[in-house]
Amino acid sequence: MAEQVALSRTQVCGILREELFQGDAFHQSDTHIFIIMGASGDLAKKKIYPTIWWLFRDGLLPENTFIVGYARSRLTVADIRKQSEPFFKATPEEKLKLEDFFARNSYVAGQYDDAASYQRLNSHMNALHLGSQANRLFYLALPPTVYEAVTKNIHESCMSQIGWNRIIVEKPFGRDLQSSDRLSNHISSLFREDQIYRIDHYLGKEMVQNLMVLRFANRIFGPIWNRDNIACVILTFKEPFGTEGRGGYFDEFGIIRDVMQNHLLQMLCLVAMEKPASTNSDDVRDEKVKVLKCISEVQANNVVLGQYVGNPDGEGEATKGYLDDPTVPRGSTTATFAAVVLYVENERWDGVPFILRCGKALNERKAEVRLQFHDVAGDIFHQQCKRNELVIRVQPNEAVYTKMMTKKPGMFFNPEESELDLTYGNRYKNVKLPDAYERLILDVFCGSQMHFVRSDELREAWRIFTPLLHQIELEKPKPIPYIYGSRGPTEADELMKRVGFQYEGTYKWVNP
């Protein structure tokens, strides 16, 4: 592979701008107003304001973009700056750019259920340069409990009458099928589907988006991507930290609602779906819905739930269990780990287990898709061969690698495990991989909904998990304890083995 010439960040961002501006969906010269509902909250200060700053800094926003914060707290732009700027990672050389960014910011205080507050917000936006005809993007960085009041008031008082209007809704989209349907029906009564952007930030990850290209742009994968060759698929999300004093919020939802029903299920769809007619948003989402419709409700015998306990040999936070978090209700049975087996009941995947695993306070930070292939028929190497695996590593250190057998150097035919490896950090030294939120917010500006969740996708996802969630809430089974920093409950490994996964433990990928 030829040595790549190092590029400056300015040059890299210039390439990104060229890609972005050559499309006809990006209205570079139009006025846009980006409204952050819930501007005083954690999500706004840690993710949304920093993301908008990065896009502005790199010249990736339309030229005439204004940012308006809205929340109940009586704040000023200076207050917003004070709480969000520490997350910007701005350099001293960017000081003038930073001043320009905050000059485009404003803030309006108001209630979430008060019509007069929204009329005041609308008047404020109209007073901005060309504000009355601007395109408006409303980001709901809010708890779902206020979605209905907020969307109703936005629709009645704050819509642009000339430009387009788009609304970005953060997960969780309800707690179960019934609450999700209620919320979807409410929002759909106010906005068209092409105006609604239900954001799952995992769909903005580079390697998640790469799944489609790997599958449908490489001839070698087509013939082997089926039940005849693939023994099982494992989708993993692991965090090495616990709730760390923020367990009160987590306890309301648990690990299945927080990660599995959305992030992991979306990745499953991209692995299992048929080739779409095109890369058009609805063509892709149509195929994802077909996959979900082929999955039956989760069966309790295919589920393992766990909850982390303190590690007596650990240090600091590792010595504390979930129930030691003062914000967690006493005696909570909320799971911090889950392993679930699903089956896609169609011709391509009949009988292939899709194993979804996620948890907190585990032994490493990792998100990946792992396809394990069947054993080689007619073994001539005296059971020395391990199964081939194709691994798409989402985070950290984005990579695609194939675990395969090669001859060990020497005189004899002794096979050993090795890999074919594409590590993004080595291959793409001159490429700026956008943060997931950067990519998705740019998608909203461009009107691309491919990486957002459609209402029928959402409904099918909740259909699969709601009976299990209701059973857990009714019966309150005690989750299996696992030690902070471990791989999780051993019962999860036993479940995976029972459905056909072979864990060798003899080879570990190392970032080159």
Rank of each mutant, 00 (worst) to 15 (best):
D42Y: 00
Y249G: 00
G110Q: 11
R120S: 11
F56H: 04
A115L: 12
S157D: 15
Q11S: 12
F237N: 04
M207I: 09
T236M: 07
V150C: 13
M125C: 11
L61V: 13
D228A: 10
H155R: 13
P223L: 09
R215I: 03
D58E: 13
Y70G: 05
A116T: 13
G59K: 12
Y112T: 05
K205G: 02
R166I: 02
L43M: 03
F102D: 05
I36D: 01
S132C: 14
F21L: 09
H124L: 09
R9D: 13
R120I: 15
H27V: 15
K45V: 05
Q83H: 11
D181I: 02
G131T: 09
V68D: 02
N122G: 10
E252T: 11
H186S: 15
L75P: 10
A78V: 06
H201A: 00
Q133M: 11
I33F: 11
Q28L: 13
I35K: 01
R257S: 07
W54L: 09
R175Y: 09
R182A: 11
A134K: 13
G59N: 14
E85A: 13
L214A: 06
R166Y: 03
R17F: 14
I234P: 03
A149N: 14
V77N: 13
S160C: 13
F216A: 00
Q83F: 08
T243C: 15
Q178H: 11
P62V: 11
A127P: 09
F253N: 08
K171A: 02
Y202K: 00
L235Q: 04
T10N: 12
R198W: 04
Q161A: 11
A39I: 06
L140I: 12
A231Q: 14
S179R: 07
R17Y: 15
N210A: 09
Y118W: 12
A109R: 09
Q28R: 05
S184R: 06
D200W: 01
A78M: 13
E206M: 14
E239P: 00
D100Y: 09
I234G: 09
I80Y: 10
A78R: 05
G254K: 01
C232K: 03
F241W: 11
S73K: 09
G242T: 11
A109N: 15
S179L: 06
L60P: 01
A134G: 11
K45D: 03
R219A: 07
F250P: 00
G204Y: 02
L183M: 08
S160I: 15
F34M: 14
G174N: 10
R136H: 12
T151E: 04
Q209G: 06
S157P: 04
G59E: 05
Q22K: 06
E252V: 14
M207H: 00
S184Y: 10
L137P: 00
F173H: 03
H129A: 13
N229E: 03
L128N: 09
E206S: 07
A90K: 09
M212D: 03
F237W: 10
V213S: 12
E94A: 06
F221G: 02
Q119P: 13
S106G: 09
F102R: 05
V233N: 00
W54E: 07
P172L: 02
F221K: 00
F250L: 03
Q22C: 09
E170N: 01
D58P: 00
K238M: 06
I33H: 09
F88C: 14
F34Q: 04
A116Q: 14
Q195A: 15
Q178E: 07
P172F: 00
S106A: 08
D24C: 05
Y139T: 06
G23H: 15
R120A: 14
D200A: 01
N229Q: 08
G163R: 14
S123T: 13
G245S: 08
T51Y: 08
R227Q: 07
H186I: 08
Y139K: 04
G131I: 10
D100F: 12
L121F: 06
S106L: 07
A115H: 13
G69M: 05
N165V: 08
A141S: 08
V213M: 13
D200P: 00
L128Q: 11
F173K: 04
Y49R: 01
E19F: 12
Y118A: 14
K47N: 05
E193C: 02
S117V: 10
I52D: 01
R175Q: 09
S180F: 06
V77P: 11
K171G: 00
F221W: 15
G14V: 07
L130F: 11
V12I: 15
S117A: 15
R182N: 15
C158S: 10
S179I: 03
A39C: 07
I256V: 11
F138A: 03
I67R: 00
L55S: 08
I167T: 08
V77M: 10
Y249T: 03
F87G: 07
A141I: 00
F250N: 00
F191C: 05
E93L: 06
I52T: 05
F26P: 08
E18Q: 11
L214S: 05
E18D: 05
I167H: 08
F21I: 15
R74L: 14
E93A: 13
D113E: 09
T151W: 13
R136P: 01
L7D: 10
N226A: 12
D58Y: 08
N229S: 15
S84G: 12
F56T: 04
W164T: 13
I154Y: 01
Q111G: 12
N226I: 04
P223V: 06
E94G: 04
E99A: 04
F34E: 05
L43W: 01
D100W: 06
L203N: 06
N218Y: 01
N105W: 09
F253C: 09
Y197F: 13
P144M: 01
G245N: 14
L20I: 10
R246K: 01
T31D: 13
N226E: 06
I168T: 15
L203R: 01
L183N: 02
T151L: 08
Q28Y: 07
W164L: 05
M207E: 03
L130Y: 11
L177H: 04
I80C: 06
Y202A: 03
F66R: 08
R166A: 01
I167R: 00
R257N: 03
D251I: 03
R72L: 03
R74S: 12
S29N: 11
E170R: 00
F101W: 06
Y147V: 05
V68W: 00
E99G: 08
M37L: 09
R9C: 12
F88R: 05
G204D: 04
A78Q: 09
L20V: 07
T31R: 13
F102K: 03
